[in-house]
Write a protein that binds this DNA or RNA. Structure first.
Lengths: 254, 254
DNA sequence: CGAACAGTTGAGACATGTCAATTAAAGTGG
DNA sequence: CCACTTTAATTGACATGTCTCAACTGTTCG
């Protein structure tokens, strides 16, 4: 029998009546993901106890513009991005929007919700998205033995630290053009890591979002794009970006 | 018998020969901390299975200027600051120093080392320090049942995410004086959380460190301090800071 | 006492923010 | 299907904040 303990009672109840159907069909059901898919998405390479865990996780579809997580909402689990692009941000005291990250396929959402039991940032879908929910109940189960899931979550949250530090370091460069160049480098690498082309991609976010991420105004971002275009390093037409020289982009400003 | 499995074989071996001494004396030994002290330092308030865990953790003393963790070193555990102040930084591609955090009493070190098995930032002691080591071996023990320690680590690493996001948001404000004012606010709150006076404290870091943290030059930090002093909001004499109006400091620039 | 370092302050250059005008694209309602 | 509005993006002119370079002071440490 398939293990559905990871899902909430209410949702599991909706599925149980059709349990007579063969398991094979369930595995093809697009509304569920299994443990191994989560591990693949996260690129987890550590060692686990119960390698073939049958736990299933419910997916959650989002339309572009829909909110994935809201600040202050009680923590109900972590989410792994299966498809799409999102924006994590916090509202500054003066009302300004501070963009923390642009989560994409394989990234983790909600890791700031563990320690206080509520989410501390807003997450919105920039494109249509598909998330996998790792319910809070299954993250820490006192009555079970070794918990692979908590171990993976621990590892993934630690990885978030690293990514955030990198992003933080991104805003270090004194010149805005260098920051934008570095931003494009990282976006390119992320698309490559997801299996897409690193030379040509479509940015899911606006100039304003990039500005709020790099801590500059949207006009400065736009001017930086234009400057890089004039130098022949990139081609940019609205959201579409083509990189001619990764080398020049990486070494720009140094 | 006291549980020393959390310590490495080599270090435990150095202790074992004196095991005939009464346990009471061991508890008073300043080189060790127990689980409950770690929980108190972290301000952990969640629920655990084995509330009275006798695991002991070895402390590590550092003189001001000594390195606590080095980038690239293999991950050997997490550290909880018991005393003192430190600086976490990463070297930027152009050789510049990007300060990530100023860990103090109750803060966690090394959380960026979990996912790749090596530390990704440098940590140096700004003052004499006392750290508590949570060894990597004890963080994930496959052969034991429920692992409270991993659960606490998971929680603490998540808290790091939040603190880093806050710090990140700190560099949001366009004006450097506002950033410095906000920085002083947060330092004040942290001293208060550690049981010290929020109105008067001594900064453990240089103007350059603050600048590398807030992404401005040291001269700009100095000028911002002077400006806040002229406004009568603070008094500052080298590292000594006295805050006259938390209200004015918090609302400065808005 | 001299050397190195931390910190303050000033003057000028330069980068970025602000405000504004313009264009293109996308969504809205008759 | 077509005005109409809204939003995203680009670009220019100007004001301003910050960086750079520099001089100077006070402290700490050999």
């Amino acid at each position: 029998m398939l293990n559905v303990q990871a899902e909430t009672g209410a949702v599991a109840g909706r599925w149980l009546p059709s349990m007579r159907q063969p398991a094979l069909k369930l595995e093809k059901d697009e509304r569920w993901s299994d443990f191994s898919e989560v591990l693949n998405l996260l690129h987890f390479e550590g060692h686990l106890q119960h390698i073939h865990d049958n736990t299933l996780f419910r997916r959650r579809r989002l339309k572009a513009g829909q909110s994935a997580l809201c600040m202050g909402q009680p923590f109900d689990g972590l989410y792994v991005v299966r498809l799409g692009a999102l924006k994590t941000w916090m509202t500054h005291v003066d009302g300004g929007e501070h963009v923390v990250a642009f989560p994409m396929k394989g990234d983790l959402l909600g890791s700031d919700g563990v320690c206080q039991g509520k989410y501390l940032s807003e997450v919105v879908a920039l494109t249509d998205c598909d998330l996998i929910r790792i319910p809070a109940e299954s993250l820490f189960m006192p009555d079970c033995g070794c918990n692979d899931l908590e171990h993976v979550a621990y590892w993934a949250v630690s990885r978030e630290i690293v990514q955030e530090q990198s992003a933080y370091a991104l805003t270090y460069s004194p010149k805005s053009e260098v920051r934008v160049a570095h931003f494009l480098c990282i976006q390119s690498e992320r698309f490559a890591a997801m299996g897409y082309s690193p030379n040509q991609f479509i940015l899911p976010m606006t100039r304003r979002d990039i500005g709020n991420y790099l801590n500059v105004t949207l006009e400065t971002v736009s001017r930086a794009f234009s400057a890089l275009r004039r130098l022949g390093i990139i081609e940019v037409e609205r959201r579409e970006v083509r990189i001619f020289s990764h080398e020049a982009l990486r070494n720009y400003g140094s």
